[in-house]
Nucleic acid binder design. Structure first.
Lengths: 314, 314
DNA sequence: ATTTAAATGCTCAGCATGAGTATAATTTAT
DNA sequence: ATAAATTATACTCATGCTGAGCATTTAAAT
C-alpha cells in the first residue's frame, strides 16, 4: 500500500437493541468472533452500494439477522478510537462504527442473538435495592486509590472532581444518566476488564466484560435512554399495548435503576395525559385489580414534552 | 473496480463552530468548491493513519486552518445519506461525515473562514422581535399547501401532525429546540433552496442556501446547542471572562431566538450560583452601571444540572 | 371473618415559575 | 440645574409542580 494513501476505513453499524421483560431491561447480544468469546453487540457492515442512509442500512441487516421489528431507532454516537477493533493490528484497516439505539417490544430473537439483562454488565447502575454493595466494596475504593496515586496535582484535582460528579459523592446526588461518565472513569482507572484486556492482560473487574469497545457503546445507549424517557414518551415503545400503571412504573424503574414513588408516579402519568383507560382490569395478581391503560398518542399534539418524569422514592 | 468490493467510503469531519458577538450567534463558514459557491461549513478529512480519535482529527485540522482555539467540542451526528456530496456522482465514492459542534469565544478567524449570523440561514428561527413575518407570509402557507396536496390520507394526517408539532401551531407553543424538525419539513416540502438544487433546479426559498447538506448539519447544531444551554453551563464558553447579567441574557436570547424575562433571568442565574461578582462595574452604557460577573466554576460540583434556563417573556 | 397485597385517593409543605410593580443609579436632553 | 430617558436591581404574589406521606378501597388467601 502506498504510504501517501490514507489507510482503508471500514464503516460498520452497531445496535444497542433494548427490550424490557417484566421489569428488567435487556439488550440483544451476540458472541464476538475472538478467542475470548465475550458478549458483543450485534454488528453489520454499512453497504455503501445499496444502503441509501445509515439507518436504512441498520434496519436492513437487523431484519435479516434477527426477526425483530425495530420500532424506535435513533443514532447514538460514532466511535472511531484507534484500537477499538483488534483486526486493526492485523491488516492496518481502521474500523469506525456508528452506534444506534433501538427499542423493541419483548419478543424472542431468532438467529444467534440472546437477550441479556444490562445490569450483568453494569451492576453498579442498579440502585433499585439501594446502593449496590459493589460500589463501597470495590469500585469506590479502587477509584479513590487511582485518584490519590495521580502524581500531578492539577490532574489529580480534575480527576477528583470528575469522580465526585460522576458518582454523586459530595451532594449525595446519584444521577442515573451518567452511565457513560462512570464507565469512562472505570476504564481510565483500569478497573474494568476491558482496560486490562486492551493492555494485553487478563481481563477482570466489576461487571461482565464485553468484546471490542461495546460496553462503552452500551453505556452510551443506557445514558441516552435514561435521559430520553424524561422528555419523550419512548417508554411506550417497550410496553405491550395494554398495561397497568404499576407495570409502567416497573419498566421505568428498571431502565432508570431507581425506585420511584408510586403515588406520585401515577399522578404524573395521569396528569400529563399520557395514558387512557381501556376499561379492562388486570386480575392475575393478588390485591385489588389494577386498571389497564393504553398510551394516548394524541398527547403528542397537546404538550411540548410529554414524558415519564422520575419521582424518586421507595 | 471489482463489483463485489464495497464502493470506497470517505470519512470526513464537519464542524459547526459557534461564537457569539454582542447578542448575535455566528457560525464559521467557508466557500464551498462548487460552481454555486454557496457558504459551507469548514470541513476536514479524517486521517486514519495519524488521528487517534475522531475528535483529535477535528481539532488538528481546525487548529491548522483557522487559528481558533476550540474550547467545548461535542459530536453531533453522523451524516451518510446518499446524494449528500455531488462528488458521489463523479467517481462513485460514498461520503460520510461526522458532524461536530464547537464553541469559541469571539475572535477573528484566520485563513479563509468568515463568521456569519446563523439567522441568515434560518430567518424563521429568530423570534426576538416577535413571530418572524416570513412564517405567515411564505413558510406556513407553503407548508399547508404541501400537506393539503398530499394524496394519501394517512400520510397527509402524519404530515399535518408533524407540521403542528414542529411549528407549535395548535398549542401556540413554539419550541425553539425543534430547528432540525422544521428544516426537515421545509426540505421535504421542497420549500428551501436545497430541495430544488438537489432536484437539479434553480435554488430559491427562505434563508440562504448552503452547500451540500450543511444547512441540515447547522440545524442539528442549533438544536443541540439550544437544548444544551438549558442543562449545562455551556453558554459561558461563549462569554468573555467578565460580563454583565444583561450581556449574558443577550447571549442566551440570541442563541434561543427568544426574548427572556429580565428579572426572572437574573433570579435564575443568581440563585443557581452560576456566577459571582467581580467587584467591578460596566459603565459604558447609559443608565445605571451594571455589576460585572464571572462564571463560578465550582458550581459544577454543587448542583446536578447547573444551567441557564430560559424564562420567556418580553 | 381476618389478614395480606395491592391499587387508588387525598393532603400539605416547600420550591420554582411567570408576570408583574417599585425603586435606584446613571446618562442625555432641555 | 432639572427633567427625561435608560438601565439595573429589589421585591411581591398567585399558580402550579414536587416530594413525602397518610388514608381508604378492593381484591385474594387463610
Amino acid at each position: 500500500m502506498d504510504t501517501t494513501d490514507p489507510s482503508e476505513i471500514v464503516v460498520g453499524l452497531n445496535a444497542v437493541i433494548v427490550t424490557v421483560t417484566d421489569e428488567e431491561p435487556r439488550v440483544l447480544m451476540v458472541r464476538d468472533g475472538t478467542a475470548a468469546a465475550a458478549d458483543a453487540l450485534p454488528f453489520g457492515p454499512f453497504d455503501a452500494r445499496n444502503d441509501r442512509t445509515l439507518e436504512e442500512g441498520l434496519r436492513s441487516w437487523v431484519a435479516q439477522q434477527t426477526d425483530l421489528d425495530l420500532g424506535y431507532v435513533e443514532q447514538l454516537y460514532t466511535f472511531g478510537n484507534r484500537g477499538r477493533d483488534p483486526r486493526e493490528k492485523q491488516d492496518g484497516r481502521r474500523f469506525i462504527s456508528v452506534g444506534y439505539l433501538a427499542l423493541v417490544r419483548d419478543a424472542a430473537p431468532s438467529g444467534g442473538g440472546i437477550w441479556r439483562n444490562w445490569y450483568e454488565f453494569f451492576p453498579w447502575e442498579d440502585w433499585r435495592d439501594g446502593q449496590p454493595a459493589i460500589l463501597d466494596a470495590d469500585i469506590l475504593p479502587a477509584l479513590n486509590r487511582w485518584v490519590e496515586s495521580t502524581p500531578d496535582a492539577y490532574l489529580r484535582a480534575v480527576r477528583e472532581e470528575r469522580l465526585a460528579l460522576a458518582f454523586g459523592l459530595e451532594s449525595g446526588a446519584w444521577d442515573e444518566e451518567h452511565v457513560l461518565d462512570r464507565f469512562e472513569l472505570l476504564y481510565e482507572a483500569g478497573i474494568v476488564g476491558e482496560a486490562a484486556r486492551d493492555g494485553g492482560d487478563e481481563a477482570d473487574g466489576p461487571g461482565k466484560v464485553m468484546g471490542f469497545d461495546h460496553r462503552r457503546i452500551l453505556a452510551t445507549g443506557m445514558s441516552r435512554l435514561r435521559g430520553k424517557i424524561k422528555y419523550r414518551p419512548v417508554i411506550f415503545e417497550l410496553m405491550p399495548s395494554e398495561f397497568t400503571l404499576f407495570q409502567l412504573q416497573h419498566a421505568a424503574e428498571g431502565l432508570a435503576g431507581l425506585r420511584l414513588h408510586k403515588q406520585n408516579f401515577r399522578r404524573l402519568v395521569e396528569r400529563a395525559g399520557l395514558v387512557e383507560e381501556t376499561g379492562r382490569v388486570e386480575t392475575s395478581l393478588p390485591g385489588r385489580p389494577a386498571k389497564l391503560f393504553r398510551f394516548r398518542r394524541t398527547v403528542l399534539r397537546e404538550r411540548p414534552t410529554p414524558a415519564v418524569n422520575l419521582p424518586r422514592g421507595g
